[in-house]
């Protein structure tokens, strides 16, 4: 499912808002979530999951082709932990 299919799916289940408004709403929500992570602020959605940043310390890596050492700086990567309802609904057993 892509973003536009998600927008369509939301539109089909309600009658109050025009497709254009749902499009704006979805983009606004995603932008809000990105801004939150950009500021190292957690996102907590009950029944869905939580997003936060994980810190990766600097390390010495290697170029797998040449075997040459490369210094990799520390970085922050977004991490998602699914919530209980999502885990249960997705798990088939």
């Amino acid at each position: 499912m892509t973003k536009s299919e998600l927008i369509e799916a939301i539109a089909q289940k309600q009658t109050q808002l025009a497709l254009k408004d749902i499009d704006i709403a979805v983009k606004t929500m995603l932008e809000h979530m990105v801004e939150s992570l950009e500021n190292n602020e957690r996102i907590e959605i009950r029944g869905f999951g939580s997003f936060c940043l994980h810190h990766r310390p600097a390390r010495t890596g290697r170029n797998p082709k040449t075997g040459e050492k490369v210094e990799l700086p520390e970085k922050y990567v977004p991490y998602f932990k699914p919530g209980k309802e999502l885990r249960d609904r997705v798990n088939l057993t």
Binding site: L6, A9, I10, K13, V26, M29, G47, F48, L86
Partner: peptide, 8 residues
Amino acid sequence: AFFEEIRT
């Protein structure tokens, strides 16, 4: 609806 459609 946004989170529910993703879950579905």
